[in-house]
Nucleic acid binder design. Structure first.
Lengths: 127, 127
DNA sequence: AAGATTGTATTAATACTTTAATACAATTTA
DNA sequence: TAAATTGTATTAAAGTATTAATACAATCTT
């Protein structure tokens, strides 16, 4: 699993890990049931403290994406989102609104934004 | 200007102000040249410290949305984004990717997401 | 020019975030 | 069962964020 963290990216290390693992799972490059590197192993690989990896894994577990078993390891969980459909829509709607506002303020036309979304969606599916 | 802050929303007060003013401008409900309430006035209205409003206004000024003149007041600036087009696309692409990943992880189908985006975009335009 | 109105600057208190050091506990493997 | 491997828990240090108290400075209004 090739994660890549940039110390001075402004974003905290544990969050960089979380986001990248989320992306890998969403893109299908990490399949349900697959085992992730042990906390210490990934920590050594990334030259960071094991607790930082542990925190990232814990967040991903709370989000329902990973499941851990002490002594055994950490695995990608199967199954869908644990939230109710209405709650999911509420959260996503918030995100969409923020995106639209930001795009508008950057003078990015709606059509260009829509095309960009299409492009990125394909990229998430195919490679 | 009817702002509404919720103390226990998790989001800091100054950020709630920033986001709502951004939305109002994006929706055209605050037009270029319009004057915003003085810092102290808005602070009293929202029952918060004037510095908190000042901070929100400062962020909006840095973002290029407001311009202030001491003694005079705070106004909505006209004109487009100060960032280069390529830089704007980079930022928006990041947001899009995060949105797509989140939607996928919530099992929201692409079609439903796209429809939702269309709906919210209209809402931003019309009312 | 004087007073009122507006934004600015400085400082500090408090809470939260992030990362790390270290020891512990459950599970697997030989 | 013994050792190795895996995740867990506790504590703390350092930095950052948030809000507030207070005094200052520029501009406008009369």
């Amino acid at each position: 699993m090739h994660l890549h963290i940039s110390p001075a990216e402004g974003k905290p290390i544990y969050r960089q890990i979380v986001d990248q693992v989320k992306y890998l799972i969403a893109a299908g490059r990490l399949q349900a049931g697959e085992e992730l590197p042990p906390i210490r192993v990934l920590a050594e690989e990334l030259l960071i403290n094991p607790n930082t990896v542990a925190r990232a894994y814990r967040e991903l577990e709370v989000a329902g994406l990973l499941s851990k078993r002490q002594g055994a390891g950490t695995y990608v969980s199967g199954g869908g989102s644990p939230l109710a459909h209405q709650e999911r829509l509420r959260i996503i709607t918030e995100r969409i609104d923020a995106l639209l506002v930001e795009a508008r303020q950057m003078d990015i036309p709606t059509e260009e934004l829509m095309e960009l979304i299409q492009t990125r969606e394909k990229l998430l599916n195919e490679p």
